[in-house]
Simulated assay, not measured.
Amino acid sequence: MKRIVVLIALSFLICTGAAQAKDWTKIRVAIEGAYPPFSQVSPDGTLIGFDVDIAVALCEAIGAEPVLVAQDWDGMIPGLLARKYDTIIASMSITEERLQKVDFTKKYYQTPAKFMVKKGIIPQFSMEALKGKVIGVQRETIHDKYLTDIYGKTVEIKRYGSLDEAYLDVEAGRIDIVMADSVALMEGFLSKDKGADYEFVGPDMVDPKFFGPGIGAAVRKQDGELKQKLNEAIDTIRANGTYEKIQNKYFNFNVYGE
């Protein structure tokens, strides 16, 4: 009798597991929508940008329907863990701290961080030149952590929900510097008319301790099959020219890195 009960229980667990297994024909993707050119919301309310096109291409390579979910940056990982979506494709760097909560695919791009200032404010970059300056950064990002750990005792840090908010304050003179991904700063501000009087200062910031090996798609730790499918899809779009086509739509240089 005990053996029969055990066999019935095992059969139930196997059937339950099979019922819960995902076929990944539909993948819900979290995207910020406030980080041009990687993601932004068009006038008609559609999510557009490099991250969006990459997400769609990866889903197509898998054979899955992409379902895009707009999500504020602060709630990205909590939303993933709460199963609001299946993956985050939102310019999220792979770091040891984040790996404690979620898993990541291999990188799908990698660009350095930079400081952006009004021309003439810092004629020669140094730690001394930054002393007393107010630096804006998007909160809860790798840039926030880097700035806090490396320059926190030298500068005043002002944190924002999005880079657009930081841009408004640097234009208004309420902050002196903005720190962010170099491509985001170039495409979101420096390349526009309002950016004509601003420039990059200082070195490329690429310390792996803070910035990790690049930008990846985040998944829940238990979703190893999805991670594998996304990794294979990254290889596919890199090999068949899709990645290059998307890259060239937004940039005139290699964003994948070495």
Rank of each mutant, 00 (worst) to 15 (best):
K209C: 03
G152Y: 08
I142W: 01
S39D: 09
V206H: 04
G45Y: 07
P112H: 09
G188H: 08
K133Q: 12
I27E: 06
T16K: 12
H143N: 13
Y109Q: 02
K119E: 12
M1F: 07
V201I: 15
E97K: 15
V170A: 06
L190I: 05
K26P: 01
M186E: 15
I234K: 02
D74C: 04
K26A: 07
G241P: 07
S91Y: 10
G214E: 02
G33H: 10
V117H: 13
G161V: 05
T105S: 08
F211S: 00
Q247L: 03
S42W: 00
D103H: 11
G188Q: 06
I157K: 10
Y250D: 08
F50T: 03
K145Y: 12
I94V: 14
F211G: 00
V255C: 04
L147V: 06
L7P: 03
T242Q: 15
I31Q: 05
V5W: 12
A184H: 03
A70P: 15
D53S: 07
D53I: 02
M186I: 05
K107A: 02
P123G: 10
I215A: 01
S182F: 02
N231M: 05
H143Q: 10
I177Q: 10
I8M: 15
Q124G: 00
V29T: 07
I48T: 14
N248C: 04
I89H: 06
Q222M: 02
F104A: 08
I62K: 10
T148S: 12
E128F: 11
D149V: 01
G120N: 06
S11C: 14
D235N: 14
V6W: 13
I54K: 08
V201K: 09
A166K: 05
S162T: 15
D23L: 05
E156A: 13
V5R: 12
G75N: 13
F200D: 03
T154I: 13
A57W: 11
A90Y: 06
R174D: 11
V67E: 15
M116A: 13
K158V: 12
C59V: 06
Q124C: 02
C59G: 13
E258M: 01
M76N: 09
L230A: 04
L58Q: 08
S11V: 10
E244C: 00
A64N: 07
E187D: 09
Q110I: 03
A34W: 04
R28V: 04
A129E: 08
L147N: 08
A196K: 15
F38W: 08
A70E: 14
A57L: 09
T111Q: 00
K194E: 13
P43C: 04
G17Y: 07
G173Y: 00
A184Y: 00
V29I: 15
R3L: 11
A21D: 01
A113S: 09
T16L: 15
F125Q: 04
T46Y: 00
R159T: 15
G152V: 06
G212M: 03
V219E: 03
Y167V: 09
I89E: 11
T95V: 10
G17W: 06
Y109C: 01
Y160S: 05
E258P: 02
D223V: 02
Y243V: 05
W73M: 09
Y250R: 10
I48K: 15
I121S: 14
I54P: 10
T242R: 15
D235G: 08
P43E: 11
G132D: 12
L81C: 08
E171F: 03
